[in-house]
Simulated assay, not measured.
Amino acid sequence: MLTIYGVYRSRASRNYWMARELGIAFKSVPVIQARRVADPLAADAPINTKSPAFLAVNPMGLIPAIDDDGVVLTESLANNLYLARKYGGPLAPADIREEGLMGNWTMWAATEVEPHAVQIVLTYDYGNEETDEGKATIARCAKALGKVFARMETHLDGRDYLVGDRFTVADLNLAEVFRYTMSQKQLFARYPRVAAWLARCHDRSAFKAMMDVRLAEAE
């Protein structure tokens, strides 16, 4: 059975959404970020990213991680590429060409989108969005993301999805990264195809089910 390590309020949401899309059974181990625990090594502390039991799974101390019948993987986007490849179906690549494209879009999201998007999210998470430094960070990252949005807007001309004219793991992976940019409404207003694509991804029942659990978790 697939085991997913990580609370839903983390990048583990990507793997929980994927498992629901594939319709596969999974076990959830709610490893929480150590920064959210007063004393992560206390005897009564919840399992967290500094817990020895979790470090035995991922020595880097980061969530998520998955264990799929003994195959242990620790990178959220790569986890999904693996799950798609193993379990097949419409989310998976139909041939080597699609596999290359899905991998390319996923790596692009990790290198060109997420670094800027995460800085924006963290600025809001720490309540710094109204400070001078916070405003400068958001402005700088939003400017960098303009190029990203423009590329997506062009690619989505005449397409509903990224690869193969259907929802695939590439869309899921990118949608989870683009979700971090949702505070930047001016970007979505400038690039309506990107906005429509993300809305289509978020309208899926598996995404909604994942988000219901995520929103029910303690902040």
Score class of each variant (00 low, 15 high):
175 A>R: 04
167 F>H: 14
164 G>L: 12
148 V>Y: 01
93 P>N: 07
162 L>C: 10
164 G>E: 11
172 L>Q: 10
136 A>K: 06
147 K>I: 04
115 P>S: 08
147 K>E: 09
178 F>M: 15
166 R>I: 13
119 Q>L: 04
105 W>D: 09
95 D>Y: 07
114 E>N: 07
87 Y>C: 06
127 G>L: 05
92 A>R: 10
118 V>C: 02
168 T>C: 09
115 P>R: 02
179 R>M: 14
120 I>Y: 01
93 P>R: 08
151 R>Q: 12
162 L>N: 06
159 R>H: 15
137 T>K: 03
86 K>F: 10
147 K>C: 01
169 V>C: 08
100 G>Q: 13
116 H>D: 03
116 H>W: 07
116 H>A: 12
143 K>G: 02
94 A>V: 12
128 N>L: 15
138 I>C: 03
156 L>G: 11
134 G>P: 01
100 G>R: 10
86 K>C: 09
113 V>C: 08
123 T>D: 02
163 V>P: 04
146 G>N: 11
138 I>T: 02
163 V>K: 03
152 M>Q: 05
117 A>I: 13
118 V>A: 14
105 W>N: 05
137 T>P: 00
92 A>T: 07
119 Q>G: 00
166 R>E: 12
136 A>L: 05
145 L>I: 07
102 M>P: 06
85 R>G: 13
86 K>I: 13
179 R>L: 14
103 G>Q: 15
130 E>G: 02
164 G>H: 10
162 L>K: 05
112 E>Y: 07
173 N>Q: 04
112 E>F: 07
170 A>G: 08
164 G>F: 09
92 A>C: 11
116 H>N: 11
119 Q>M: 06
153 E>H: 06
86 K>M: 10
135 K>L: 10
139 A>Q: 07
132 D>A: 15
131 T>V: 00
111 T>E: 07
172 L>F: 03
119 Q>F: 00
121 V>L: 05
124 Y>C: 01
98 E>P: 02
160 D>P: 04
167 F>Y: 15
179 R>V: 06
149 F>V: 04
164 G>M: 12
176 E>D: 15
128 N>P: 00
124 Y>V: 00
100 G>N: 13
85 R>E: 15
168 T>F: 09
174 L>D: 03
113 V>L: 12
160 D>S: 14
119 Q>Y: 01
177 V>M: 15
139 A>E: 09
157 D>C: 13
105 W>T: 11
125 D>Q: 11
172 L>S: 11
98 E>T: 04
140 R>D: 10
88 G>W: 03
159 R>D: 10
119 Q>P: 00
91 L>Y: 03
89 G>T: 09
165 D>E: 15
111 T>L: 12
148 V>E: 09
179 R>T: 12
139 A>S: 07
165 D>Y: 06
132 D>N: 12
99 E>N: 13
140 R>Y: 05
136 A>S: 10
149 F>S: 04
170 A>V: 10
92 A>W: 10
111 T>Q: 10
160 D>V: 02
104 N>V: 13
144 A>G: 00
171 D>G: 11
145 L>N: 03
165 D>C: 08
148 V>G: 01
157 D>V: 14
108 W>M: 06
98 E>V: 06
123 T>V: 06
174 L>W: 07
99 E>Q: 15
85 R>N: 14
119 Q>C: 01
112 E>D: 15
131 T>G: 00
175 A>F: 09
175 A>K: 03
179 R>I: 02
142 A>C: 02
92 A>S: 14
112 E>P: 02
133 E>G: 08
151 R>E: 09
140 R>E: 12
